[in-house]
Amino acid sequence: MATDGRPLSATTVRILRAAVAAIRPRGHGFDQAIDDDVLAAVVEFFPYLPTPMRLAFPVGLRLLELGPAAVLRRPARFSGLPPDVARAYLERLHAMGGPFAALVLGLRTLVLMNFYQHPQVLAALEIDWAGRAAALTRRRAALLEGSAS
């Protein structure tokens, strides 16, 4: 897995994979097996982030990985936690405010956006925005030509 032509380290990928597993929606019709797709889509965003954020992100992820010892008083790494526990850990970090809350918010935004826009999830929600776009583009062209009512 690479971003901006440079391969991500195995540790970064492992942490991101754990973040996807913790944050992604579950139940209520959202049990699609798309974690790998979501992870790939999240990684694709990194090169477009502003430089300070791009530089800070790997550092933030490392601190996130080591944080359970301090936050949960549990001798474990984030990427080794079961998703439920990892989720509770992220919620604790978010509630603490400051830069860690910003990191959780950023991860949450990337994961949820890429999860809910996945074609399988859109299909589950019975949303066909793309199909509607194609139909409405044709309709508008016809309206402007005067060949549609």
Binding site: A22, R26, H28, L90, R108
Partner: peptide, 23 residues
């Protein structure tokens, strides 16, 4: 779009899913 609205809805995991099921 659901992906953008979800990011602004509270909760992670199942909690977020419960809300977004009503999109």
């Amino acid at each position: 779009p659901p992906g953008l609205l979800a990011a602004a809805m509270p909760g992670l995991g199942p909690e977020n899913a419960e809300k977004m099921a009503l999109y």
